[in-house]
Structures are given as structure tokens and as C-alpha cells.
Nucleic acid binder design. Sequence first.
DNA 1: CGGCATGTTGAAACGTTTCAACGAGAGTGG
DNA 2: CCACTCTCGTTGAAACGTTTCAACATGCCG
Lengths: 230, 230
Amino acid sequence: MQPAMSRVPAACAGDCRFFREEGSGPIDRNKPAGPLLKISRGTTIYQHEQPAHFCYKVVEGAVRLSRLLPDGRRQILEICLPQDTFGLETSECYSATAEAIGDVVLLRCPRECIAELQDERPHVRGKMLSMLSRGLCAAQDHVAMLGHQSAKERVACYLLRLAGGHESQQAYTVRLPIGRQDMADYLGLTIETTCRSLSDLKAKRIISTPDRHCIVIQNFAALESVAQGD
Amino acid sequence: MQPAMSRVPAACAGDCRFFREEGSGPIDRNKPAGPLLKISRGTTIYQHEQPAHFCYKVVEGAVRLSRLLPDGRRQILEICLPQDTFGLETSECYSATAEAIGDVVLLRCPRECIAELQDERPHVRGKMLSMLSRGLCAAQDHVAMLGHQSAKERVACYLLRLAGGHESQQAYTVRLPIGRQDMADYLGLTIETTCRSLSDLKAKRIISTPDRHCIVIQNFAALESVAQGD
DNA sequence: CGGCATGTTGAAACGTTTCAACGAGAGTGG
DNA sequence: CCACTCTCGTTGAAACGTTTCAACATGCCG
């Protein structure tokens, strides 16, 4: 079943970058080793329940994975930022819809390439498993949040997550990759409630909002205690 | 820590059953090929954030995966039924706590065995990926449910899931693997709300409840329309 | 039978949603 | 430069659904 030789199609060669070590700095865009896909704001990358041909990795920008409920409500499952991968499912069809939030640059890899890379390069297997495993863990975090946290807790949690463990004593500026509506759909709230929660944090001087897309965390300790229900 | 010996430890041999094809009937308990672990009601199998040494597969009974929030609230992430696997994470520590709901029979496999099985038996890789992938998809379903569905919708969804696609015209009896409290914690509701939702369905003659652990779906169509928000 | 865990129901309190109005900023064209 | 429009964000007040707290019912086991 495996006539060795160069089983990995030429188009795949560059896509090994898909599995390069993370945390070893951002992808070097001066030495592009494969086709970068540029996609403009709002474009649908793929749709829920359609056949899954490709996997993706975000190079620049942000992508939202969401599901549309029969009555038009929308749940955002994940906001993918640079270095994140999506569309890795092993089932026939995509398990969510993927859309570009702003202009986005992606790395795209055909699924059969991934399969072959796995056969030929053992480290790719581990990488693949850990990507999926991390995704699962993130989804579980999300479930725990939606199941039993109040609006204020959810908003505080999300801000802390964006700050990504920078639990410094000083003020820390977070750039929001998404607008209020997306934030609301991610947190399982309405846009109004999301807004009110932010206003609340602002009134308590825990955060400040110099502009729409920026939030400055003024008091990490207080934000953490809000995130855990006072 | 691991005195090597033969590459796949003897204890693992039987645990290949871990990856046998599903849908090919239940595990044959007359020909046990490995150690079956019997665990009694309420026992903690492993705890969230403790080092992950083993993976498990449910043979009999039900297991709940949950997280305890700092303030004592609990979110159940998954109810594992016979054939389901859990504890497959690739991170160092378990991503949730696992507890036996009733008396339970499990298949247990050390993680290093899984790793070696993967190296030696290609089909195990695909199996492993599809197990994780399925788990991810289930978690995403859960997120979508908790994010934007009302109590009645959640309860209806859960019942339909338990019925497992048996969308027959006739009445169908579902055996609840869990009590009301676990159901509530899974659905992100209180036990009272869960109860009231069930009573509602009963009042509308969509279900009937001959006893605590049984629910008879009398009207699939109506249950589905409740699940989708009327 | 009592004792205990589990399930059910009621009424008030609470938080989120809904609906509506308004504000701020970016882009366009006069 | 200003008015215009369009999208996005913010705030208020009432409506709604879920939670909370309390009481009671049921089933099981010693």
C-alpha cells in the first residue's frame, strides 16, 4: 500500500511547515516555503458539513470557527489566531464553518498530504495528535465556561486568556482580534450583555478601553477574582 | 522508570482491544484478552491535572468526565458509555476528572503502550486520531448547546442523543445512565430546572417516565421540534 | 419503621435578553 | 469641510427564563 519513493506530492513539500515546532518564533515570511493563501475579510473558508479536503494554519489575522443553529443563532467555537491550526478533523466533513474575521493569510495543506506525511515522518504524528488534543482541551475549557459561569466571569476569563498568562503587575494592553458581536457569540451572550460587562469592568477601573479594538488590563488580580466569581 | 524489556510490555498485549473496530459488536467478555478493571460506584478513576499514565475504555457502566470550578460548581464534560474511550490526552496531565457513575468495568492501557502500538501498527494511528477527532466534535456539539440553547432545548437534545438516531415513529425507551444531578451538571442547568423541563415534556405527552431511570419517548417529531426551539 | 439520598414542585429573587434609542467613527460625495 | 450614511458600540427599561430557597414526595436499605 506504500510504494515508498517520494510519496509526498510536490505541492505538499512546503506544507511541512504545518507541523514545524511552535514557540520557535513566528513563521518566517522572508523564506516562504509554500503557497500562502490570502483571504479577504468576511470570506467563508469552508462550511460546516461540507467535505473536508484541506487543513489550515493561520499565519496572519484571525479566523472564526462557528456553527449556525437552525433558528439563526450562531455559536462561535473557536477564534484561531496566528500559529493555530484548524480543519484537522478526520471525519469526512468539516465540523464547523470557518470564516475570515479580517484579512487573513493562511497556510493550506491537502488532507491526503497530512496522511502521507504522518506515514513518513514519525514526529508529524505526535504533532498531529497534540494539535487535536489541544483543540479538545480548549473545547472543554469552553464547555466549562459556558456551562457554569456568569456573563461577567466569561468576559473576564476571555480577557485573561487573550492576555495569555502575562499576569504581570503592570498594565497590559490586549488587542482584540474580534468585534463585540463575535465576542458575544463566542461567550454565548448577547452583544448588549457583553458590552455591559465590559462597562462594568471599566467602571471598577479594572480595565480601560482607549479604543474599540484595545483593552488595557489595569488590575490583573481584580480581573482574576472576577473571572472566578468574586 | 521504564525497564524496557520487549518493546510492547506483556500487559499491553491484551490492550490492543483498545483499538479494535467498533460497531463490530460489543467486546466479547467470554474471551477476555486483557485485564478488566472493575471499579465501584462513585470511585474517582483519575483527577484533573494529575499526571496522565493511562487511557481507558468503558466496557460496562458509565463514567463521567468533569471539572470542578474554584467555587464548587461542577461541569460535566462528557458521559462515557460502553465502547467510549477517555483519558487519551497527549498532554502530561489529565484534562478532567473521571469518576465511575455506577459500578463500572474498564479496559486500561498505559500511555507508553499506546505510543508504541502506534509506531508498530499503522492502523492504530488512524484509530487514535479518529477517537480524538470524535471527542473534539462532541465537545463542539456541547459548546453549541450550552452557548445558545434554552433549558428545554438542552433536555430535549440530550434525550434525542441518548436515543441515538432511532428516530422511529414508535415509542422508544431510553435508559438514563445518570441521575438528575449529573444530567443537570452536564447540561449546565440546576437540578430543579432539569426536572421542570422533563415535567414539561411529560405534561405535553412527548415523553413518559415509568421510573426514575427510564424515559419513554412517545413523540419523536415533537421532541425534535422542542430541541430546535419550536 | 426510621433515616437518607434522590426527585419533584412552588414562589420570589436574580441575571440575561429583548427592544428601543442613541453615540461614535470611517468612508463617500457634494 | 461638512453633511450623509452605514456599521459598530453603548445605555436604559421592561420582559423573560433560570436560579435560589424551601418544602414535600418517593424509593431504597439497614
